[in-house]
Amino acid sequence: MWSWSFTFKVLPKLLSAAKITFIATILGFLLASILGLVWTFLKRAKIHWISSSATAIVEFIRRTPLLIQLFFLYYTLPSFNIRLPALTVGIIGLGLHYSTYLSEVYRAGIEAVEKEQWEAAKSLNFTPYQTWTLVILPQAIPPIIPMMGNYLITLFKETPLLAAISVVELLQQAKIIGSEYFQYLEVFTLVGIIFFIFSYPSSLLVQYLEIKLKNPAEKRM
């Protein structure tokens, strides 16, 4: 059933498509990290309509499928005269979707910083910007690194959805090869294995970090 010669024939092709998967993962996560922070600040805004609309938007994005969000971006952006390569659209979609998860993580991290730290910053007459960059974030970020790591892994496993908007990443490449030879077993199994050998060790690493940091942010959640 399983053909090793076929396996070795298609493996290089799959691995080169895996490059796209990794690019999408890394850039998508980068975008999510930054955008997540933006949401966190918007949700904390003193002006009520800003904070409440940010909360509503984040909730909406979180409760709807990434797949539709990708379709939405892919098919409607051009009608606003924004023409982007599919991979870029995919990265934006992934980044936007996961930014909502990361904003929760940041919130937990920030809330875990003791309120005395804010008072200390005030007593030293720091500006708000200084308070955030010098006092709060340096304490809020390290404990949430494992949780961020978890979302990096989750995002990585969601990249196959980009196939739906014609990005030829790992899974799409496998499907193309599979239908060409009408031989799906090897390609789809290989894709699964490739995902597994990246995500499983990473999740072990995250667990290790979690234990090591004894994550104070998580206790609050």
Partner: peptide
């Protein structure tokens, strides 16, 4: 770990496209 470590879409394809073999 296998089902958490691979992707849902990969699993769906595997079940739908590979199992018939």
């Amino acid at each position: 770990e296998i089902f958490r470590g691979t992707s849902l879409l990969v699993q769906l394809y595997w079940i739908y496209f590979v199992l018939p073999f």
